[in-house]
């Protein structure tokens, strides 16, 4: 005999998914209310249709409520600079900027300590100065974006989600196939950022530091890099499309597993090409002319160039090995029809 259908568990998952996009202080109360409203809607549907409140009706109710991200956006208020609708985009961008900025600062500290240790206070001072500037610019940019960009542009990844979204992905038995959408929205942003960086602004890949109060930047990609740029760009753009598709549908299926396998294989080919190709770290005069650079720092980079390229090749080799193992495991799982065990979300009852 089948177990009786537990609508509360399914609705609890939906409410929790909505909660991801809500401000923390209101989240719990809104989740509880959504849960209660869903139960009311199901009861009403069941009475009207003179059918038991089963899984089919529960999924119909969820379909009417719409994708969690869309439903959550209706709770938006304009009283904050960066509203809850755009906040899920703002947060990962801020995190990413912080990681990149901190990494660059740490590299800068190492370089300053080895070259001009007395400048360390300047470097730290510039870190806070520029940090606040970056934070301010990001907040301002997002506030402006939210208020000026037509929704059809800003939210094109969410276009038509009401029709394509399938609430069956929330069923408790699909817990192992479910993904954490924010993770893939974040990945899509990172991949788009990388695609833009490596295709449009490759001269901004490098390291910088602050010497005597003057900001200096050394781009590290050589002329050889340009031969690989379209292929690297295509890889990041494909990963971007993959992440958007996965975040939109909210769960894994065979199509997405094969898409990921294809991307992994492409990535491995790219890694091998980079591994056996010419050095991509080097001094590119065209890129160099686009920045203010410190001649001492450039001389140091020239002297250590060989180590950078060797280090990169070791990294590429390790990645080829790891990714090949991942590819084999993923393919075997798919061929044996087991589906990959990815990011299972615990079912949450509220």
């Amino acid at each position: 005999m089948n177990n009786p259908f537990d609508s509360q568990e399914l609705f609890g998952i939906y409410a929790a998914e909505v909660g991801i996009y809500l401000p923390r202080r209101k989240r719990k109360d809104i989740e509880l209310e959504i849960l209660s409203l869903l139960e009311d809607a199901l009861e009403d549907k069941s009475d009207t249709a003179e059918q038991p409140a089963d899984e089919k009706l529960a999924l119909e109710v969820l379909k009417e409520f719409g994708p969690p991200i869309t439903f959550a956006s209706s709770y938006r208020t304009n009283q904050v600079l960066v509203g809850p609708e755009i906040f899920p985009l703002f947060r990962p961008v801020l995190q990413l900027a912080a990681i990149i900025y901190l990494t660059q600062f740490l590299i800068g500290v190492v370089i300053t300590l080895t070259h001009s240790p007395f400048d360390i206070l300047n470097t730290v001072d510039a870190f806070f100065d520029k940090g606040f500037q970056i934070f301010g610019i990001l907040v301002f940019a997002f506030a402006l974006l939210e208020r000026t960009t037509p929704k059809t542009w800003l939210y094109w990844p969410f276009k038509d989600m009401e029709n394509t979204w399938d609430p069956a992905g929330l069923m408790p038995e699909n817990a192992k196939k479910r993904i954490k959408p924010t993770k893939y929205w974040f990945e899509s942003l990172v991949m788009l950022g990388f695609a833009v960086l490596f295709i449009v602004f490759p001269h901004w890949v490098g390291f910088g530091n602050n010497t005597n109060g003057v900001w200096s930047f050394i781009p590290v990609l050589s002329k050889n890099y340009l031969r690989f740029a379209p292929w690297i760009g295509a890889f990041f753009l494909s990963r971007f499309i993959f992440a958007v598709m996965l975040a939109r549908q909210g769960h894994w299926d065979n199509k997405m597993h094969w898409f990921e396998i294809g991307l992994t294989a492409y990535g491995i080919l790219l890694l091998i090409a980079l591994l056996y190709g010419p050095d991509i770290v080097g001094i590119n005069q065209t890129f160099l002319s686009m920045h203010t650079y410190n001649p001492d720092l450039l001389a140091w980079f020239k002297a250590t160039l060989q180590y950078w390229n060797t280090g990169l090749r070791i990294y590429l080799l390790l990645m080829v090995i790891i990714q090949s193992i991942v590819l084999v495991i993923r393919t075997i799982r798919m061929v044996l029809n087991r589906g990959a065990l990815k990011f299972p979300l615990p079912t949450k009852k509220i």
Partner: peptide
Amino acid sequence: DQGTLYPLLRR
């Protein structure tokens, strides 16, 4: 619409 009413009640 549900998406209109529930947030409105909160506001």
